[in-house]
Nucleic acid binder design. Structure first.
Length: 520
RNA sequence: GUCCCCGUAGUUCAACGGAUAGAACAAGAGAUUCCUAAUCUCUAGAUAAGGGUUCAACUCCUUUCGGGGACACCA
């Protein structure tokens, strides 16, 4: 029985008990106390019921507890002002560790997303220049979010939407031709060798080179693999945008004004209507994006689509959401906005890339840091904080940075396992009763909850935090409990425990796309 | 002006509305006859300010002050 199941079990036990004693239906929330002294799980309903029925919460808690009988718990404690704390039986925990050893790389796999298709679209930076740290932030984020969904049982597609159409391509062309309308500059523009005089054609070719020679290489260095590279120009060529606009027209959701065609997005809680076809008959970016999403839902049949955008696109969320809703896919699109990134070197923000004359790029970081470090540092922070990338910690004090701390735990385990001859399957972990050992087991089992929670709320920073916690718990165990001891049975049981730890560490590192070195 | 994100320890970040606000780096003190000291143990240190809701607020509402972003027939 995993800790997720235990949570569910507590919920139903407590709810049943309330029904019996207080004749009420109550939705119970099972809490995970921060303090170990408060048990493995806790419930605070007695406080709510006590308040509502004007009885002492402590009495309510006692009544609830009376009706709960389960082998799952070592003890159930009632603590003032009315918390009920559950301490899970160590027998159950030990059994569960055995399933970790059996499941190996499958440990942590859930069925939450079974039968559902989900798409994560991320980065999607314009092919007009190298990936900056800003638009690169979506790389690790989207990649790992996709991994979490996979682990949770979804069928996942990772997609990059290439904006190879429109004004920025023209601007790129002018920039390469270095005429008066040039907009982009820098060493990378000078390096683009494109023949021709037509600015748009030159721009198209330039964009192709930038995409293939710069962006894709950076993506590759970050260890990201996309399932789909979708080109905006394809939508234009195939007339998909016209079809989409036609659909909206039929629904009477458009109107003409000053020569342009508008979409009544205010019908869907947008603050203003949006243009689909400009006065000069060109289609707007939004028109294309709505068509793209029509394709995602209609053709590819995604149950859910998550777009990861930079915070500067905040203003566009409402328009696209309105479009998606108009097409009948309300609530299937979610947009996650990532706040800006600054790189701090010696406490001072680094703004510009040295070589390229652009904003500081992902490659600038990757030149000096491994993708392991870059990914980990990006993932540590929640999406809506402005991320200050601490370059000094990432680089100069590398032996003290959290990535190595986690990897070191893995390497330590590998090193012990190498020294041990043959490891036998354990029947039971009867000899492992030290505080450190039990703690480590509990920490391992939390992995499933981490996947569950993260697949629901998308708070990715939980993953690296968990990795650090697991490493900390292991290092503590390592300090106090010798694995390779004389007693053969104790040795074997401990070997199995660190094997389970190793499996879990590997799984969490894989999830983050960070390597797990056997030696350091 | 309107809208969004943020303000937590010296610094970078955490904390389903729950119990004593957690880490890491930096600072100070200690631990190695033993599986990798890239480790462990201990000490000191924080919710921007004011109201409100709640049995319970970093978390929700509100005002103020700060930082960032968005307000296109650009993408």
């Amino acid at each position: 029985m995993s800790s997720m199941d235990i949570r569910k079990e507590i919920k139903s036990l407590v709810e049943d008990s309330i029904k019996k004693t207080h004749k009420k239906d109550f939705t119970v929330q099972v809490l995970k106390p921060k303090d170990k002294a408060h048990g493995d799980f806790a419930v605070s309903v007695a406080l709510e019921i006590g308040k509502e029925m004007k009885i002492n919460p402590m009495d309510v808690a006692l009544d609830i507890k009376k009706n709960i009988k389960s082998e799952l718990f070592k003890k159930i404690e009632i603590v003032s002002p009315g918390f009920i704390n559950f301490f899970v039986s160590e027998k159950i925990i030990k059994q569960e560790i055995k399933t970790v050893l059996k499941e190996k790389e499958k440990f942590g796999n859930l069925e939450i997303g079974k039968g559902k298709k989900i798409q994560v679209e991320f980065v999607s930076a314009n092919p007009t220049g190298p990936l900056t740290v800003g638009n690169g932030r979506g790389g690790p984020f989207g990649d790992v979010l996709g991994n979490v969904f996979k682990k949770a049982g979804y069928k996942v597609e990772k997609a990059y939407y290439v904006n190879d159409f429109g004004k920025q391509i023209l601007s790129l062309g002018h920039s390469i031709l270095k005429d008066e309308e040039a907009k982009y500059s820098g060493e990378y523009i000078d390096a683009l060798k494109v023949k021709g005089n037509d600015a748009y054609e030159v721009g198209k070719k330039g964009a192709e080179i930038i995409l293939n020679e710069m962006i894709k290489k950076t993506i590759d260095k970050l260890g990201i693999k996309y399932d789909e590279w979708f080109f905006e120009s394809v939508l234009h060529k195939k007339g998909e945008i016209d079809k989409t606009i036609e659909t909206l027209k039929k629904k009477d959701l458009t109107y003409e004004n000053e020569g342009a065609l508008w979409f009544k997005s205010t019908n869907f809680k947008d603050e203003r209507d949006r243009v689909l076809i400009k006065e000069n008959k060109e289609k707007t970016y939004l028109a294309g994006d709505i068509a793209y999403h029509k394709y995602k839902f209609e053709k590819k049949k995604f149950d859910k689509v998550i777009n990861i955008w930079g915070a500067d696109h905040f203003g566009d969320v409402a328009g696209l959401k309105a479009g998606v809703e108009a097409l009948g896919y309300k609530d299937k699109l979610e947009v996650i906005l990532l706040q800006f990134v600054t790189v701090l070197k010696d406490g001072v923000p680094v703004k510009m890339s040295k070589r390229l004359g652009t904003a500081i790029t992902m490659d600038d970081l990757l030149e000096e840091l491994s993708s392991d470090v870059v990914r980990f540092f990006f993932l540590e922070k929640s999406a809506n904080t402005h991320l200050a990338f601490n370059f000094n910690l990432a680089k100069e004090q590398s032996e003290k940075n959290p990535v190595f701390y986690v990897q070191y735990a893995y390497a330590r385990i590998s090193s012990i396992l190498k020294k041990a001859e043959n490891i036998k399957t354990v029947k039971e972990f009867s000899l492992l009763n030290e505080k450190r050992e039990i703690e480590l087991m509990k920490q391992i089992l939390k992995f499933k909850e981490v996947i569950e929670d993260t697949s629901m709320d998308h708070q990715l920073q939980r993953i690296p935090q968990y990795a650090i916690d697991l490493a900390t718990t292991f290092h503590g165990f390592y300090q106090d409990c010798q694995v390779l001891v004389e007693d053969k049975e104790l040795k074997n049981q401990r070997l199995n425990l660190i094997l389970a730890t190793q499996i879990t560490l590997k799984n969490v590192l894989d999830l983050m796309g960070v390597s797990a070195p056997e030696k350091m």
